Amino acid sequence: MRKSEVSSTLTVYHDGQFWVGVVEHVESGMLSVARVVFGAEPSNEEVYAWVLERWSSLRLSAETEPVGPRAGRLPGNPKRRARAAAKAMRQHGSSTASQLALARERERVKDGRREDRAARRQDEARSRWEDRRERKRRKHRGK
C-alpha cells in the first residue's frame, strides 16, 4: 500500500483592499485551492478560530494542478531555501500554481453560470411561446 502525502497551507496576505487567505491543499500529488476574504486584518486568534470552525466546510477547487516531485529540490542550505520561499510568499501572497488554479476555478464557475443563464432564458422563451400558442388556440376556438 502506497502512502499518500497530504498537506494544507493557509497563507494570509493583504491584497491592497482586503486581507485574504489562500488555502492550498495537496493530496496524492494534486493541488486544490480555495480563497477566503477576511476583510479587516485578522489576529492570530481569529485565524485559529476560523480554522477550527470553518475548515471542514471549506469549498476547495477541483483537483487540477499536479504538484512537482519532491526530488527536484534545489541544493543548498534548507534554512536559506525556507527563508527565500517565505520572502516570496510575503511578496506575492501565494504560489503561482495556486493562483492558476484559482483562475481556472473562477473560469469554471463563470462558465457554469453562463450555461445556467442560457438554459433559463431558453426555458422562459419556450414558456412564453407556449403561452402565446395557447392564447391563439383559445381565440381561434372563440373563448
Rank of each mutant, 00 (worst) to 15 (best):
E5L: 15
R114N: 09
E65K: 11
R128H: 07
H25N: 08
L52T: 09
V37Q: 07
D123S: 11
L58N: 02
W50K: 02
R2V: 12
P42I: 01
R135K: 14
A88Y: 06
T9W: 08
A88D: 06
S56N: 12
S28V: 06
D111K: 13
A49W: 03
V12K: 00
A119C: 12
E53F: 15
M89I: 11
A97V: 07
A101M: 05
H140E: 13
R121H: 08
K3I: 09
T9S: 10
S57R: 10
R133W: 05
V33R: 01
V37P: 03
F38Q: 04
L52H: 13
L60N: 01
L10G: 02
S98R: 00
R90Y: 05
K110V: 09
R59H: 14
G93N: 03
S98L: 00
S43V: 03
M89G: 05
R120L: 12
A88R: 11
S61P: 01
G21L: 00
P66H: 02
E27M: 08
T9C: 10
T96G: 06
M1S: 15
A97P: 03
S28M: 06
P66R: 05
A118H: 06
V12R: 01
R135M: 09
Q99V: 09
S98E: 00
F18C: 11
K139D: 13
R132C: 10
L74W: 05
G29T: 01
R113D: 08
S28K: 08
A85E: 14
Y13W: 04
E105P: 00
A103K: 15
G21F: 00
R83F: 07
A97D: 06
P75M: 15
R114S: 10
